[in-house]
């Protein structure tokens, strides 16, 4: 119980060390979601709206990538960015940039797979109407993305949830360096192993609060969207 009280104090007094970890975690995860959205949304739309040989196989692969083990992604990015790796000259291993790359690889398949499903479902519904209105390919994509925006927001949030909660990838490519690459999840793992439970519990409380608040905002946006647009 004493640990719980100390953890609450750390959160309520906005302890600088705790806040720095929270800030870095949010910067890394939100950047990764933004990068993954740039890759995943067009990729999902492309697979949803085009027909090509091997399409079914690519959907199976994409869906399989939803279960990518973070630590394996971390290892892959580590090998790419390590000094002797093909991208070693970038010199970004054990930096937040490397963490963003690893989380982008984890999150992009989630966004692409959910976007594909959402856009394909809407396309089946809209296809005849848009053809009858002589809407061209670019107009179709724009219409589908716009009308599916509230569902796509959910896809982005699912991606954020994955990024914010994972520890395996960021600890391998970030190194959990104090004040530089330490995120909430890596800090919780470290502090727990050290026995410093107040900080670990405090970070856990903040992490859960962030996930709850973000999902509440998304739920609110979705409900507002349904009221306005059906």
């Amino acid at each position: 119980m004493r640990g719980d009280v100390s953890a609450l104090q750390l959160v309520l007094t906005a302890d600088p060390a705790l806040m720095e970890i929270v800030r870095l975690s949010l910067v890394v995860s939100l950047s990764a979601v933004a990068c993954a959205a740039v890759i995943g949304l067009p990729l999902g739309a492309l697979i949803a709206l085009t027909r090509y040989p091997g399409r079914e196989a690519s959907i199976v692969v994409l869906n399989a990538l939803l279960g990518l083990p973070p630590v394996v992604v971390g290892l892959l990015v580590y090998l790419l960015l390590s000094r002797s790796g093909p991208l070693g000259t970038w010199g970004i291993l054990f930096t937040p940039q490397a963490m963003v790359i690893a989380q982008t690889i984890l999150v992009a398949p989630i966004i692409a797979a959910l976007a594909r499903q959402t856009i394909e479902d809407l396309w089946l519904e809209y296809r005849d109407e848009l053809a009858a209105m002589n809407v061209g390919p670019a107009g179709r994509v724009a219409t589908l993305l716009w009308d599916a925006r509230f569902s796509l927001l959910t896809a982005l949030l699912a991606g954020f949830g994955r990024a914010a909660a994972e520890v395996g990838a960021v600890i391998v490519v970030g190194g959990n360096i104090d004040g530089f690459t330490r995120t909430m999840t890596t800090a919780i793992a470290l502090e727990t192993s050290k026995g410093d439970l107040p900080l670990a519990i405090g970070l856990g409380m903040v992490l859960i609060a962030i996930v709850v608040v973000v999902n509440a905002l998304a739920w609110g946006a979705r409900r507002a969207g349904e009221r306005l647009a059906g």
Binding site: E125, Y126, D128, E129, A132, D147, L228, A229, G230
Partner: peptide, 12 residues
């Protein structure tokens, strides 16, 4: 054309 079950765009 108006289809038997027209699809409404998710808009007003």
């Amino acid at each position: 054309i108006v289809f038997q079950r027209p699809a409404m765009l998710r808009r007003s």
